[in-house]
Structure formats: C-alpha cells, structure tokens
Amino acid sequence: MPKYLSQLWIVALVLAVAAPWLISSYELSLLGRFLAMAILAIGLVLLWGEAGILSLGQGVFFGLGGYAIAMHMKLVSLPEGELPDFMMWSGLDALPWWWVPFANPVFALVAVVALPAIVGALFSWLVFRRRIVGTYFSLITQALALCFATLLVSKQDVTGGFNGLTDFKTLFGQDLASPGAPIALYFVTLGFVVLAFLGARWLIGSRYGILLRATRDGENRVRFLGYNTTPYKVVAFAIAAALAGLGGALFTLHAGVISPALVGVVPSIEMIVWVAVGGRYSLWGAVAGALIVNFAKDEISSALPEAWLYVLGAVFILVVTLLPRGIAGLVRDLAGRRALVATKPQEVQK
C-alpha cells in the first residue's frame, strides 16, 4: 500500500478524537451512534469477509446487546418495588424471573457480549454441524431475525412490544441527561471501536485467521487436511455476535431506545449493506461503510423519507455488481495496488 494511504489512519484517529470540538452536538450524537454500528461491521469483516459466512441475522445479536443494557437501565430507574410501566399496563404483578439478574450492573455488562456470543455459538453450532452452508445458512439467519423481531412485538407484557424499551435516566449512577454525558459516551464508543479494530486485526493475522480464509476458499480441502472446520466457524460467528451485541448496547445508549424495528430483517440487511459498501475484506472499509451509509441514510430520509429503501436497494445492487470489494477495494485499486487477489476468494474446484 502506498505510504500516504497506510498513514491515513493517524488523520482519521486525530479527527475522531477532535470531533466533539469540531461538529455540533447533534452531529456528534449521530457519529457516536454510527460508530457503535461500526463495531458490528468489524465483526462482519471477520464473519463475512474472512470466513465467507453471510449472516442476515446480525440484528438479533445487536438487539440482544441493546436489550440487555436497556433492561438494566429500565430496572435501576424504578422506585423500589415498582415494575416498568409497560408491565403494569399489561397487568403483570411481578417481574419475570429472567429480568431479575439484569438489575445487577456487572451481570448486565457481561450479558451485553456474553448473551449474543452464547446464543450465536449455540445457533451456529447446530446449523454448521449439519454442514448447512452458503445461501441456506443465510436464509436460516434471516428467519432467525424475523422470529426474534416477531417475538419481541408479540410478548409486549415482558419486552415492551413494538415500542421497545426507552426513557432511560441513569447508567451506573451517572445522569444520562448531564451535559458531559454525550461526550463521555462518544469517547467510550470510540475506544471500543479502536479495541474491536485492533482485536480483529490481530485475529485476522493469526493462524486462526489463515484457517478461516482457508475454510472460506475450500472447506473440503481443509477438512481433508485433518481439521474439524465446524468449531472455527462457530467461533467466528460467536465473535461477530459479541461485537454486534456490544455495538447494540452502545447504540441503545446513544439513541436512548431499543425496539424491534431496529433488530428485524430489514435492519439486518442494512448491516450487510454497510459492509458491502465499505468493503468486506477490509476493517477500515467496513468502519467507513457503516459511517457513510448511515450518514447518507440520515440525509436522504430527512429530505425524501420514501426514497431511502430504493436508494439502499440500488446501492446494494451497484456495489455487488460493480464493486465486489467495496470502497476499500476501489481505493486500493486506484492507489495502484493490484495484488489484492490476496483477499479475494476463489472457488476451489473439487
């Protein structure tokens, strides 16, 4: 890569750190929200780019992380002995048992990543061990997203239903309405983006990363070299789920709400579009894709609310047909680097 490109991350990081003093507080809250989504996008580079597993159900894990932190905030904002408002309206007289542990801040924090990771690991293990791959796997993940969103809506008495969970006041004793809160939250989010980025880069460069790419290119060849490929794929799925959960929790803090409309089939597809646009073989591409697509969505849906879904569809088709490696691939090609076949998968004939 040309030197100026490989040094560009310094500029990006400096700008990101200086952002609270450069842009308006409204823009900063958007940026924080989109950076939270970028954490999910980093997980998709590992899962979709490296392992070649297309999940159309990342919204589920985003939602699990978001609901975990939202349940905690809902519980701590209550006066002693009271139930969340929607439960009272539904006539519940006691807190469901599975809500109880979320009152504990440590449990809620661990659950933000552990819950999606465990659910993701179990789900993917059940599917991968039956050797269901490719499109079939993607369709099952989409069905999972549909089930999850439907379940949330239909179980209104315990989930808040269509409106989801909102109206949070404090987190770990800190007032969320205080003037310093948005900036603190922004830096926490930025910190997690950097951590997720570095962690994913380390994994991609490790022997595990090599095995993931090998499995993507020729799972049979890898299997017949004596590797059991299922656990590697399950681990990739669980890591991507954990990152989605972390992103979902941070998003919930920025947006002040988590609801079924944010975790269903369409949002899950949007998540794929971020990464497709940015470039699924590139970590910074995925981060850039999450930011670009979401800022565009914000602009377009405030100017022409009906147009967004058409734009989304058109962008997805254009990227898939013309830019299979996304913006990151385009930038590298323009910078004159042609050896990118390195990360481009090719089918192994058998």
Binding site: D217, R221, F224, L225, A342, Q349, K350
Partner: peptide
C-alpha cells in the same frame, strides 16, 4: 486424516488466497 491418510484431489485443491 489424523490417523494418517491424506488425499490429493483430482483438480488441484490448493487454497488460492
């Protein structure tokens, strides 16, 4: 495979990337 058999496939099964 771990017991000690390995096979080369008919068309080359190298890992391209």
């Amino acid at each position: 495979v771990r017991r000690g058999i390995c096979r080369k496939f008919q068309t080359p099964g190298v890992l391209p990337s």
